[in-house]
Design a protein around this nucleic acid. Structure first.
Lengths: 351, 351
DNA sequence: TTTATTTACGCAATCGTTCCCGATAATGAT
DNA sequence: ATCATTATCGGGAACGATTGCGTAAATAAA
């Protein structure tokens, strides 16, 4: 069963005109008489004519669709970012093809090949936490594919990038934990080669140092799958709990890791925040309903999506090759709730 | 800046062949000599040739893409369903274009027009909670667009449908609330004309009746925007709390409403479950981490997406018009946690 | 040797649209 | 009345790929 659409030929035939004339009439060309235009327009309206986007794509050699690759859409940060992406894309007549890497390099490569073979005009990507080899992306970029990175950025590729001030976000969160009476603070991060991992751990380290606390490297745990596998987070938390320098607080560095840590701590019967403080990057709108309500560093995900798309469309629609790239850095927001402040110190802190 | 792809012409030119020969060689036609095939295949491989999907779409009059309309992707139920949809679609060489209605009819219509003008081969849709006029969908369907409904179904349109046993889900949940000692149970629902609203309220009513409890219609609240606007849920809960027959439990009928009710109750300082029991349909994986852990009716969202897509591809790829439609009904799962059982009755229930 | 049959390829139409050229007729200028 | 100009429209190629049909050369059958 198929959906038969009306074409410019149908209009031409019934109106006794050529397809060229109809095409021109529809595009309001000056070479067509007002009467003809009127006839064509009215008839087109009547039979509900819409230009075939596929034929246009073939002619114009552009698909008017952009590809988006994120870890997973069932993740508040990414779904909010996608909302931002779609809002800008749709308003500009582009559609969005979303693919999920699920934090796997293999799937990322499959998606990359799939999207490019589907002839997208551009790509917005937050690389998977497993990715350390950017050869394919680099090749695509060199062959002229417009790319904008967001969230997880690739330094080696020169193009527009959208990120948050991860350093400051982590710095502020760590500082908050210290001021809340924690001194032995652990960090649970994504894989070490991810841009945001470096920056966030940088902020964490700086905050520790600025407060005269020596960073204990054994309290920094890396989750190679970004928390997609819960066992990985459980393992990291277990190691922390069994450590001779058992921490009194954890800084979790991404959405999935934050809830993963909370889940694990609750499972193990550890009281948060009294036995273990917890602060994490998260965009879930349920954080305040959690037990305990989570102190989070929230990212302007929707806005990041908007900015990334605006930049991508600039790249796509630019006549000449763009050489002047920008890296937009947006601000994070620290939202203090119960998970970071032990009850005994609460009054003191809130005072 | 654009991404120049290599075409069949490039191969033909450098190899001194015609495009037809190259095309046939690539498709392993019997009329091409083994040597020519080898030459062509090797060269195509070398210069990384990929057939232009847009040209193919134009030729075959199919885009190999399907449209999906849901309320919002930042909703666990829908994002899980989309994962199911994508898994099947991608494996069959289709890509997925996702659009969000945000529970608004207007946006739904815009998306519908957008997707059809982008020449999708088929549509998977869960209608918005506001939608009561199905004229556009009906027209599309009559014009031959393959459509599969999931979750929120349209009875008046004859096609494949995928849903859960909402009646039983609500029946079981209500029964559970009654067995947990609640007698005055309210329901917070989507708009009344939605299929799932009818079924779920049907299950709720039946469970009440079967337990000898008369349903108090004033304790059934409808949220026209499906909880997209929190104020709407707050209003509903407020009315319930101020009601002369103030309920001792609430059954929330969809994801957004469930968390909306919890949010409102906590905001008002109502203890859940001791002052007010709460059970709701929800697919969030954070429900067990909430305060209190939520008792939920969980839907097999991923599987629903898979089934819906399988059915849609059948419709799309069927040679002759399909007249034999199925409605697949999957089972829900009741997961009992703390929000439904008051502490005083807990020991009795769990015994 | 002549005719019939394969083998292996090219030509051209097609999908829906745009756009460069022409071409015709009507108008204006001389 | 003749030529130049404008207004209005049609023909046909192009975008990239597929495919029915035609055809040359090579082989097999007579």
């Amino acid at each position: 069963m198929k959906f038969e659409a009306v074409t410019i030929k149908d209009i031409a035939k019934t109106l006794g005109l050529s397809t060229s004339t109809v095409s021109r009439a529809l595009r309001d060309s000056y070479e067509i008489s007002p009467e003809t235009k009127k006839t064509v327009l009215e008839y087109a309206q009547k039979i509900n004519y819409h230009p075939n986007p596929i034929a246009l794509s073939l002619k114009e050699r552009r698909s008017r669709s952009i590809g988006v690759i994120v870890a997973e859409i069932a993740n508040s940060f990414f779904s909010q970012a996608i909302n931002g992406i779609e809002s800008i894309a749709y308003n500009n007549g582009y559609n969005v093809i979303i693919a999920q890497s699920r934090e796997s390099v293999d799937r990322e490569i499959i998606n990359l090949n799939y999207l490019t073979s589907r002839s997208i005009d551009g790509l917005i990507i937050s690389v998977s936490t497993e990715t350390k080899d950017f050869a394919l992306l680099k090749e695509l970029h060199e062959r002229g594919m417009p790319i904008v990175f967001f969230d997880r950025i690739v330094d080696e590729i020169q193009t527009h990038k959208v990120t948050v001030d991860s350093y400051k976000g982590a710095y502020d969160a760590t500082t908050h934990l210290i001021r809340s009476g924690h001194t032995n603070i652990a960090a649970v991060a994504n894989s070490a080669f991810l841009s945001i991992t470096k920056e966030r751990l940088g902020g964490y380290r700086a905050a520790m140092n600025d407060n005269g606390i020596t960073v204990n490297e054994s309290l920094i745990k890396y989750c190679h799958h970004g928390g997609m596998i819960l066992a990985e987070v459980e393992e990291a938390v277990s190691q922390l709990l069994e450590s001779p320098q058992k921490p009194d607080a954890i800084l979790a560095i991404s959405d999935k890791l934050t809830t993963g840590c909370l889940r694990t701590l609750k499972k193990k019967g550890i009281n948060v925040p009294n036995e273990m403080g917890l602060v994490g990057f998260s965009n879930t709108d349920l954080t305040e309903l959690l037990d305990p309500p989570l102190t989070v560093i929230k990212q302007p995900a929707f806005e990041m999506g908007e900015v990334a798309t605006t930049l991508l469309l600039q790249l796509i629609e630019s006549k000449r090759p763009v050489t002047d790239f920008e890296t937009k850095t947006l601000a994070t927001e620290l939202i203090v709730r119960g998970s970071s402040v032990a009850s005994k110190t609460k009054s003191k802190i809130l005072a």
